[in-house]
Design a protein around this nucleic acid. Structure first.
Length: 433
RNA sequence: GUGGGCGUAGCUCAGUUGGUUAGAGCGCCAGAUUGUGGUUCUGGAAGUCGGGGGUUCAAAUCCCCUCGCCCACCCCA
């Protein structure tokens, strides 16, 4: 096939087989969102590029799909949060807080591909606006856990690492960053890489005199040592005396215990996330086997609306992409067998019976059934074979004999049993989904 | 970006000392008489052997270039 006829690298076509799996996953996203009282929103996939450029060395900004059209600089959204913030800002006077909004945006990022990383993915976003308390974080983390349960990932195969940028910021504010608090965001962007490049490389970046952070070596060492903490108690005792960030974490873990998910979360001082706008609690889900990149990530971004010119509005959210969780499910053989489902197939033997067949199909469709009507003149053998192939439960057969008697012959494909029904009111069963 | 592997029918793949019309399984299509599927049997269609160039009497097979896919590393959400 000509290369120009292939989908661009890193993008996917969804044939019915794949689409059914996607539908299955999205149904779970939507159902969890519904159970937590979230309402769905959407926004344009194309935004003004400026909405996404934040100059903190974020990779997400460097990997924008962008283009210029009629003197406008536009970009495909690499994530949903800026669009969401834009929407909140536009109606900030009339929105009744707190808000619980979710979305299923397709997001784009131009980067080199590896396993679990494409240039396009669908990301389930769950956000709460207007709630400064960590009760919001707890609610979101619980929702993420519910999703993992719904797709049957064994408890323990995925855990959620939690940290609080505020705790780190408050710790560093008294020492390393006392003279340069503005370097905190770029510092977090660098720290985010620690899992991928290791502590030594992070130290190098932090202390690079030409870098955005440019810490003295001993200060860099202090930061990297801090990141090694995995026990909240240790972090609290070695942090500042009355850190609100530490107190938030203690409270959050308590709340998560109330949700019954204390065993699925861990404190990890090295988690900061790679986006500049996070201000407080940050978290990410990862597979405990360590085979994949983060499955889900999120956190609190209380200042984002202000940076767009709005009023200070607390907000917290997470994103969970379809690609990584799809890999995880495929690896564990947890993807369901989604077969096509069709309630009925209606078959007129010839054009003489078509009018009656249309009537049967219409009546069944009015009952809410999924009905395929054979559109051409076909042989019965072929029609039954098609019906079988397409997962139809019943076939409504209309030949000259049936028409003469004012009946339709109904064949159940599972049992092979047949019975007749009066043509006037064919008796479909309720839809099965 | 570097290294390695792969690219033959819709899919999974056979096919080397270069040698007639390039194969299998699955799938697809059509039959096995009159209006009955999932099984079986028979037959059929379908491939610029990823693309381009070169060597040769002759290339799926050898060489070069190129594109694409996979893995690892590098890099990075």
């Amino acid at each position: 096939m000509s290369q120009k006829l292939q989908a661009p690298r890193g993008t996917r076509d969804f044939y019915p087989d794949e689409m059914r799996l996607r539908r299955w996953l999205f149904d779970h996203f939507e159902e969890v969102a519904r159970r937590y009282g979230f309402e769905q929103i959407d926004a344009p996939i194309v935004e003004h590029e400026e909405l996404f450029t934040r100059k903190a060395g974020e990779e997400i900004v460097e990997q924008l799909y962008h283009f210029e059209l009629h003197d406008r600089r536009l970009a495909l959204r690499p994530e949903m949060t800026p669009s969401l913030a834009r929407m909140v800002l536009a109606r900030s006077g009339s929105l009744r807080m707190p808000l619980r909004w979710f979305s299923l945006p397709q997001c784009w990022r131009y980067e080199r591909m590896t396993r679990g990383r494409k240039r396009e993915h669908y990301q389930w976003n769950m956000d709460i606006w207007g709630e400064p308390d960590v009760t919001a974080e707890a609610e979101l983390i619980a929702a993420a856990c519910d999703l993992l349960d719904r797709v049957a990932i064994p408890r323990g195969d995925v855990k959620i690492r939690i940290n609080n940028r505020k705790l780190l910021e408050q710790t560093l504010a008294q020492s390393v960053l006392r003279e340069r608090p503005e370097r905190f965001a770029p510092l977090c962007v660098v720290i985010d890489k620690i899992d991928k490049i290791g502590p030594d490389a992070v130290l190098e970046l932090l202390t690079d005199p030409g870098g955005e952070v440019a810490l003295p070596p001993e200060d860099g060492r202090f930061v990297v040592d801090w990141l090694g903490l995995r026990d909240l108690g240790d972090a609290l005792s070695s942090g500042p005396a009355h850190s609100s960030g530490g107190a938030e974490l203690s409270r959050l873990f308590e709340l998560l215990d109330a949700y019954g998910i204390a065993d699925r979360v861990v404190f990890d001082a090295s988690v900061v996330r790679g986006l500049a706008y996070y201000t407080g609690v940050v978290f990410e889900a990862f597979d405990t086997a360590g085979e994949l990149r983060a499955i889900c990530g999120g956190g609190r971004y209380d200042n984002l609306l202000e940076t767009l010119g709005g009023r200070h509005t607390p907000a917290v959210g997470f994103g969970l992409g379809d690609v990584v969780i799809g890999e995880l499910l495929a690896d564990r053989n947890l993807l369901p067998d989604c077969t096509r489902e069709l309630d009925a197939l209606v078959f007129p033997f010839g054009e003489t019976e078509r009018r009656a067949a249309v009537g049967v199909a219409t009546a069944l469709r009015k009952q809410g059934l999924a009905v395929d009507l054979v559109l051409n003149e076909a042989r019965l053998k072929r029609v039954l074979s098609d019906a079988d192939h397409n997962g139809a439960r019943r076939v409504y057969l209309l030949g000259p004999d049936e028409l003469a008697r004012g009946e339709v012959l109904v064949r159940d494909l599972q049992s092979g049993e047949q019975h007749t029904e009066p043509l006037a009111e064919p008796d479909g069963e309720p839809p099965h989904n």
